[in-house]
Every structure is written in structure tokens, then in C-alpha cells.
Amino acid sequence: MPTSKLAQAVTLEGPDAVAFAQSQFTSQVASLPDGQWQFSSWLDAQGRVRNLFHLARLADDRLLLLLRGGDATHFADALRRFVFRSRVKLNVLDECKLGTGESLPMHVVDTRGDVVRMGCGTHSLQLGARVAQDETWQLAQLRAGWPWLPDTALNEWLPPTLSLHRLGAIALDKGCYPGQEIVARLHYRGGNKRHLHRIQLSKAAMDGAELLRDNREFVRLLTVTTHSDSIEALAIMPDETANSMMQSTDITSDDGVAVRILESWAD
């Protein structure tokens, strides 16, 4: 998760901003009211998650995307290739800081001056040039199963692996968007064999690290947070591995990191 870094955020503005987002992203953007946000993602043609983000509708013709991992400039440059004749302008927000605000109902967006607050229930995310940066929101979001994607996890995982259906980031009742056929096939026919878990680690590890057992990867960490002498992480693991771990107290990696499942999320 980000540590004292600037927020990676992009705005989409113009008469076609919502229609363009509807055609590119996985959520039902067209039905999002002003002053609300939703989880959404942008997939590649193989259905893998290129970027995950909060998508907020600030006005009829203005959207704000707060990336949950990845670089905003790289994201905007890649997305511009698909603009063609759409009347939409993409802007990267420079010097935008991310911090924790007071509680605000889930999915509510509140703009005060140059500060945007996104309601997350028990807290809010604040974005702005003069926002005081802090990371107190990280543990609550980790425990809620809200993935934050390190660079090594971009363009790698399918939406059900990251539990994006549960977050409302995937719409199955809208027109085509990149990767839509893969999303529909996995939803209706199954086949996804990896899922998201909240785990406890006995030792500190880096975001995005691979944990090996018998020289084979059995856990891929997404984000790791330390609190009160405990280390928790969101991680991806094969269903077979998770089922085996459910039968024991923990499993130890080749480099001595004991892993225990605390919570699991299916599609």
C-alpha cells in the first residue's frame, strides 16, 4: 500500500466522459449518480485487471478516478489511445495527497474547496493538495478485502481472483468493454481457481512478494500491513492451497514465514 506517496488520480472531463468510461471500464458508470463513487477496473483483452480504482462522479461531465495501485500518468497515456473521436479530456492530478478523513457513508462523494472526500463507512479517503497524508485507512480497507495492487500485480489477475464482483466493480448487464467476454465466461461457466484471502504472517514481507513452499509459489502477497505487533496481508492463493490450509493451523514458507488464513472471499 502507498506509504507517504502522492495519490495517483486522473480526471475524465467532457460531454462524452461518462459514455467513454462506460465503454472502457467494468462497472455500470452510466447509472452512477452525481456525488457518488463506485469500484471499477480497466481490463486488457484477456480479461486481466490492468488497473483497479475508485470512480467518482463529480458532475454530469466530470469523473475522478483514484487508482488503487499503478501510475496515473502511465494509466492516462494508455487510456488515451482509445479516445478516438470521443469528446473527453484526461488529466493527471499533480501534487494530490491522500489521507484519512472522518466517517462518511459508503459511496458518498463530498467536495469542499479543492478537497474531495470519498465515503468508506467508518472513514473517508481525502484527496487534495493540502490534505494531511496518513495511512490509518489502510488496515480497515485491508480487513474489508479491498485490494490495492502493487506493480507486480498489474495486468496479471482476473476479476474473480480479486473478488471484484463482491465489490460491485463488475457489471454483467452492460454492453461490451475490454475483456467482457472473459468476465462473462468465468461468471457463468466457472473456471477461476484462485481467490483473495486475508492472512496473518509470522514475519514481515514486501508488498507483491511471492512465498514459496518446496520451491513452488503458494501465496502471492498483494499488500502487507503491520499493527499492534501483528502482520496482516491480502493475498492470492490457489483454492487447493487454501483448502489445505483450512485443515491446519498454518503453513510455513521455505524462508520461514508462517501463514494463517484469517478470512476468505469467493467470487
Rank of each mutant, 00 (worst) to 15 (best):
L167Q: 06
V257I: 15
R220E: 07
S31E: 09
G70V: 09
A19F: 01
L98H: 11
I231G: 11
V108G: 00
T26V: 10
V29G: 07
I261R: 11
I261Y: 11
R87V: 05
D71A: 14
D94H: 12
H107E: 14
S31R: 12
L201Q: 04
Q133G: 07
D250C: 09
W37R: 06
D254G: 07
Y177V: 05
E135F: 01
W146E: 03
R260D: 08
A59L: 12
D77G: 02
Q247F: 00
R185V: 03
A153S: 14
L158S: 00
L234C: 07
P159N: 00
L79M: 15
L66G: 06
T11F: 10
M246L: 15
Q126E: 15
S248G: 02
R220M: 04
D94L: 10
R143F: 01
E240G: 02
D229H: 13
I236R: 04
L154R: 06
S253C: 11
Y177K: 09
A205N: 08
M246C: 07
L63G: 12
S230F: 04
F84E: 01
R194F: 01
V10N: 05
G113M: 05
L6H: 13
L65Q: 08
D60G: 15
R68H: 04
Q126Y: 01
Q133R: 13
T111H: 00
D94N: 11
L32C: 11
K97L: 04
D214W: 02
I199S: 02
R85Y: 03
S248T: 14
T100F: 10
W148M: 13
H74Q: 15
M118Q: 03
L142C: 05
D255H: 08
V116A: 06
A56N: 05
D110P: 00
S41G: 03
N243W: 02
N243H: 10
G35C: 02
G113R: 01
R194Y: 02
A129H: 08
G99K: 13
I231P: 05
L262R: 10
G101R: 05
L65A: 15
A153W: 02
L164H: 09
Q38G: 05
M237A: 11
G179P: 08
R189L: 15
W42Q: 10
R85P: 04
S103H: 02
P238Y: 00
A140H: 06
L139E: 08
G256L: 04
P160V: 04
V259C: 13
W265F: 06
L149C: 06
Q200S: 15
V49D: 04
L154A: 03
R213V: 00
G14S: 07
S4M: 11
L211Q: 09
R112L: 08
T152S: 15
I231F: 04
A140D: 12
A56W: 04
S228P: 01
